[in-house]
Design a binder for these strands. Structure first.
Length: 139
DNA sequence: GCCAACGTTGGC
DNA sequence: GCCAACGTTGGC
């Protein structure tokens, strides 16, 4: 199993909206970036991911699970774009802010820190453990 | 609200 | 196939 991170503007699609979808989940549509799309194509059902709020909050706020592998994005007007479906698993007791990630040397290689514009990114096992620790999250 | 970084597009 | 122009994203 692998780990990922999904980034979203809370005003467009927030954690609360994701939670409201329950176990049925929701497709992660609207991605129009090849790198991000390719990562979604690599995902498998059961993979876990962080849910990150950009813009106002800039923090990892919860954990989601991939519940459907990549399929055509229903909002795309051509066939280039795929997306996965995800459902909310649990919120972080303490949101892990971007500043906290930048301040932790163990996360210096994280894509979130180095490549802030990538909206879907892989997370290493080590990074996953550190961010969970910072957020007070235990599976 | 501004600006920097990056990705994508289109002309040559 | 290259490169300049443009649009978008996201941090500050």
């Amino acid at each position: 199993m692998r780990y990922w991170l999904f980034k979203s503007e809370p005003s467009e699609w927030s954690w609360d909206m994701q939670v409201a979808k329950g176990d049925a989940g929701e497709e992660w549509d609207g991605v129009r970036n090849y790198q991000a799309r390719n990562f979604m194509r690599d995902m498998a059902v059961g993979d876990l991911a962080f849910f990150y709020h950009s813009q106002t909050e800039k923090a990892v706020v919860g954990v989601v699970e991939v519940i459907a592998e990549a399929h055509p994005d229903s909002t795309a007007d051509d066939d280039r774009w795929d997306c996965v479906d995800i459902k909310a698993i649990a919120p972080f007791p303490t949101p892990v802010t971007l500043d906290m990630c930048k301040d932790d040397p163990r996360l210096s290689d994280m894509a979130l820190v180095n490549n802030p514009r990538l909206s879907v990114q892989p997370v290493s096992d080590a990074e996953w453990a550190v961010v969970c620790e910072l957020g007070g999250y235990t599976a």
